[in-house]
Simulated assay, not measured.
Amino acid sequence: MTTTVSSRADGPSIDSAYAWVRLGVSMLLSTIGGAGMWAVVVVLPAVQAEFGVDRAAASMPYTATMVGFAAGNMLVGRAIDRMGYWIPALVSAIALGAGFLLASLTSSIVAFSLVQGLLIGLGTSAIFGPLIADISHWFDRRRGVAVTAAASGSYLAGAVWPTVMPYVMQGEGWRFTYAAIGMFCLATMVPLVLMLRRGAPREATHGSPGSRP
Rank of each mutant, 00 (worst) to 15 (best):
R8Y: 04
A157I: 01
M165G: 10
S154I: 12
G77P: 05
T124P: 00
A56Y: 12
G158A: 08
V41K: 03
G77D: 07
T65V: 09
S13A: 14
P213E: 06
P12H: 10
S107E: 08
T205V: 15
L118M: 07
L44M: 15
P130I: 15
V115A: 07
G24T: 11
F112M: 08
A157M: 03
A187G: 14
M83E: 10
A39K: 02
L118A: 09
G182R: 00
L102W: 03
M189H: 05
G182C: 05
R8N: 12
M37A: 09
A70M: 15
D81G: 10
G210E: 13
D81P: 09
A19H: 06
S6L: 14
S113A: 08
Y167I: 10
T177G: 05
F128I: 06
G52M: 11
M83T: 11
Y155F: 14
A35E: 01
Y167R: 10
A187F: 05
L23K: 06
L122M: 15
Q116R: 07
L28H: 06
P88K: 07
A157T: 01
L90E: 01
A64Y: 03
A126S: 12
G68V: 03
A56M: 14
V21W: 11
S104A: 14
H137I: 06
D134T: 13
Y178K: 00
G121V: 03
V42K: 04
E203D: 12
G121N: 04
Y167V: 12
G24F: 10
T3S: 07
A126W: 00
A200P: 05
A58N: 12
M195A: 15
L118P: 00
M37V: 12
M189K: 05
R82L: 14
V5E: 14
V110L: 09
G153A: 06
L105I: 00
D140C: 12
L119V: 04
Y62T: 13
E203F: 07
R175V: 05
L44N: 11
A103T: 06
M66V: 15
G11V: 09
G123D: 02
G36Q: 01
H206D: 13
I120M: 04
A57S: 10
T31A: 14
T148K: 08
F100Q: 01
L101N: 06
V40C: 08
A89W: 03
N73G: 15
S26I: 13
R22V: 13
P201A: 09
